[in-house]
């Protein structure tokens, strides 16, 4: 696959949610995180596909790990954002900020 140089909007969201969750990032925890933060329903399948794509592009790594939850042992695929992923997220943020810079119409300036 060709290395990714930019992120799609949804991939961007997933990556940020994974970063927020840290060691507890897996498909459904990302789903809950995104829903809580964005207030929109998110498809588990879309997250799953996005994570696989990000993994192929080297932005996250994943591994199976067992965890114990309310006495139940559960196996999950946990993801961790790689330095490349962090760098790309940072680049995406920079680009967004530079686009937002000075947009007072939207941010509540003169003619709101």
């Amino acid at each position: 696959m060709t290395p990714k140089s930019s992120l799609g909007e949804f991939e961007h969201h997933v990556l940020l949610a994974a970063l927020r969750l840290g060691d507890e990032a897996y498909t459904t925890s990302i789903l809950t995180e995104l829903e809580e933060r964005t207030g929109r329903e998110v498809s588990a399948a879309a997250i799953y596909i996005a994570l696989r794509r990000l993994e192929t592009a080297g932005m996250v790594t994943s591994r199976m790990r067992e965890s114990s939850e309310r006495g139940e042992r559960r196996e999950r695929r946990y993801v961790r954002v790689t330095p490349t992923g962090i760098a790309l997220a940072r680049g995406a943020r920079q680009r967004l900020l530079s686009l937002w810079d000075g947009l007072t119409i939207v941010t509540g300036g003169h003619r709101a």
Partner: peptide, 18 residues
């Protein structure tokens, strides 16, 4: 049926919990 074998059980369980 629509999940790859390696993630079938784990992801199904996760969705069940949700």
């Amino acid at each position: 049926a629509s999940l790859p074998a390696e993630d079938r059980r784990t992801l199904c369980d996760e969705l069940d919990a949700l």
